[in-house]
């Protein structure tokens, strides 16, 4: 079993992958594009460093054994293994950290729990995601953590309908249990405010009945942002919950996308093996576990200094 930690680096300077194409609405393209860009940049840069005698990698890539037919460098050159964890690509911790005092920033983290990952592991997911974000930004706490649960959406041509449909989505019990884990971190001061995403009126009401720490924020994704269903805005107002907008896809990293990204295909990174028994790379099924998006925003200047993603997936070899 290998845990793969994917990272994008700071995507704010990676224009084309995060600027919305004219006419597109919401998508997970930002994550997959920036992962792909970061991987291909790492492949080029580490391969270059390696060729120039500056690399840390072994002999890999020099002979045919680990080399790849399409000329991409061997994963050993540009990824890094730490025990059972594989960093894809190798993370450049040297450029971690923020330019100004912590107090200048509003740090927002959105943690996506992905659909096929086992909910009982969420404590580990939360810890690992926060560990990575804190290390990347060089901070001890975050200002807002928004939990995005699988299976929730705010979809429909009419926002009323979206709100009604939403009531039966997700899994209340799991969500409340996970929330309890986040509440602990909140009480420890690691997270200053907690939020949720895509909770419609009914679902939010039920949630509020069961949790101790109330969410400060509910992020919703509606096509025309002028059309918040009035019951939802009323409830949010009464409960002091801010309704934020977003354009993230809930299923931000489907396993098919991940397999394509890491596989042996022409667009792939060559980390995962394909069906061929002689193929190099990690074998077995891949299960996306979580994705975390982080943003460091300089409050009094309105400037986004750092934005990026980490994603985690587990490979499970069939026995």
């Amino acid at each position: 079993m290998t845990r793969i930690i994917l990272s994008t680096g700071n995507v704010i300077l990676d224009g084309p992958s995060i600027i919305r194409k004219p006419g597109t609405y919401r998508s997970n393209l930002e994550l997959t594009n920036s992962l792909r860009n970061n991987i291909s940049a790492a492949q080029k840069e580490y391969a270059f460093a390696f060729q120039n005698g500056n690399g840390h990698a072994s002999h890999a890539g020099q002979n045919g054994q680990n080399g790849h037919s399409n000329g991409r460098p061997a994963p050993e050159v540009w990824t890094e293994r730490e025990g059972s964890t594989l960093y894809v690509p190798r993370i450049d911790w040297e450029s971690a950290g923020l330019q100004e005092d912590r107090s200048q920033y509003e740090i927002t983290v959105k943690l996506f729990f992905l659909p096929i990952a086992p909910p009982e592991k969420r404590l580990d997911y939360i810890k690992e995601a926060l560990r990575l974000v804190k290390r990347e930004l060089g901070v001890d706490d975050v200002d807002l953590l928004i939990a995005s649960f699988p299976g929730l959406a705010f979809e429909g041509d009419c926002e009323w309908e979206a709100d009604r449909k939403n009531a039966t989505m997700g899994n209340d019990e799991e969500e409340v249990t996970t929330w309890g884990l986040l509440e602990k971190l909140y009480h420890q001061g690691q997270i200053k405010r907690l939020g949720i995403a895509e909770f419609g009126t009914e679902k939010l009401r039920r949630f509020l009945d069961k949790v101790k720490v109330r969410p400060a924020v509910n992020q919703i994704n509606i096509r025309n942002c002028c059309n918040v269903p009035p019951p939802l805005s009323k409830l949010a107002k009464e409960e002091g919950i801010e309704l934020f907008t977003h354009h993230d896809s809930t299923d931000v990293l489907p396993s098919g996308t991940l397999r394509e990204l890491l596989g042996q295909g022409p667009q792939g990174a060559g980390v995962l093996a394909d069906g061929d028994p002689n193929s190099s790379g990690l074998k077995g099924e891949i299960i996306p576990e979580w994705v975390v998006k982080y943003t460091a925003f300089v409050k009094n200047r309105g400037v986004i200094e750092n934005k990026g993603y980490f994603a985690s997936a587990e490979t499970v070899e069939e026995t």
Binding site: I18, I19, I220, V228, T245, T295
Partner: peptide
């Protein structure tokens, strides 16, 4: 060319804005 308005929208997508304000 990405366009200045889509660039601004992408900026707004990356920050915390409440629904009313964004509207």
């Amino acid at each position: 060319f990405p366009g200045l308005v889509p660039i601004v929208e992408s900026y707004l997508d990356s920050v915390n804005v409440d629904v009313q304000t964004r509207c």
